[in-house]
Amino acid sequence: MTTVYDIPPDLLIRKVAGELKELDAIEAPEWAGFAKTGVHKEMPPKDEDWWYIRAASLLRRVYIDGPVGVQRLRSFYGGKMDRGSMPSSFRKGSGSVTRKILQQLETAGYIENTPEGRRVSPAGRSFLDGAANSLKETVAESIPAIAKY
C-alpha cells in the first residue's frame, strides 16, 4: 500500500485539501480572509483556499512527526522576519491558525489529542493513505520507483 511517505508533498497536499474542503467540519472562520499566517509575513495569503491547504499540510505534518504540540508546529510554519537594516531573525508562525485547524481536524475525527501531543487517528491515517494511494498512478508515470509499490 502506498503511504504518505511515497508521494511528493505538493501533490498530496493539493489532493487532501480538495477533499477537506468538502467536509462540513473544516471551515475557514470569517477572519481568515484578512489574517496573516505569522508575524514574519507582511500580507495575508492571496489564495482563497489557503485554510484548507494549511489544514492538509498540518494533517500530513502530524502524520509524519506525531505526536506533536502546537508550539512545535508553529516553529515549522515560521520564517525569517525582515527587520529593515537589522539582520533578519526567525519568528514562529501563527498559533491561533494552527490551533483552530487542529481543533477542526479533531472534530472531523482525523486527529486525536493525547498527553504526549496530537497524533493522527486511525481514521486520519486511513484518509491520508487512501489519498496517497489514489495518486500512485499519477506519480508512477513521472517517478518509476513508486510503480513497484
Rank of each mutant, 00 (worst) to 15 (best):
G130R: 00
L20C: 04
S142F: 08
G78Y: 08
A25E: 15
I53F: 14
L128M: 10
V68Y: 03
E141K: 15
W51S: 07
K92Q: 13
G117M: 02
G66T: 01
I7D: 00
I7W: 06
L11Y: 11
P115Y: 10
F34Q: 10
A132T: 02
S126H: 11
A32I: 06
H40K: 07
V120S: 06
R83K: 14
V16A: 06
I146E: 01
I111H: 07
E137M: 09
V139G: 05
T98A: 08
A140N: 07
S57R: 08
P8D: 01
L102N: 04
H40N: 10
L135F: 04
G66W: 04
P144C: 00
D10Q: 12
K46S: 14
R60W: 06
I7S: 02
V97C: 04
L105W: 06
K100S: 13
R72W: 09
D6H: 15
W31R: 14
D10A: 13
I146G: 01
I143N: 12
V139L: 07
T107F: 06
I26R: 01
S57K: 08
K92C: 08
G69N: 15
H40M: 09
S75K: 12
R99L: 09
Y77G: 00
F34V: 12
R61N: 10
A123E: 13
L135Q: 03
D65I: 08
L128P: 05
E116S: 14
A123I: 08
S75R: 12
D10W: 06
S85Y: 06
G124V: 01
T138W: 10
S75W: 08
S88E: 14
V4P: 02
R125W: 05
M86I: 02
Y149C: 09
R91H: 14
G130H: 02
T107W: 05
G78E: 02
K21G: 05
L105R: 06
N133I: 02
I143Y: 10
P29D: 03
E137W: 11
S121A: 11
R60Q: 10
P144I: 03
E106Q: 14
Q103M: 13
W51D: 10
K80M: 15
G78W: 08
P144V: 04
G38K: 02
K148M: 13
Q104C: 03
A25N: 10
W51Q: 10
Y110T: 01
G109E: 04
E27R: 15
G66K: 08
S89P: 00
M86P: 00
R54C: 07
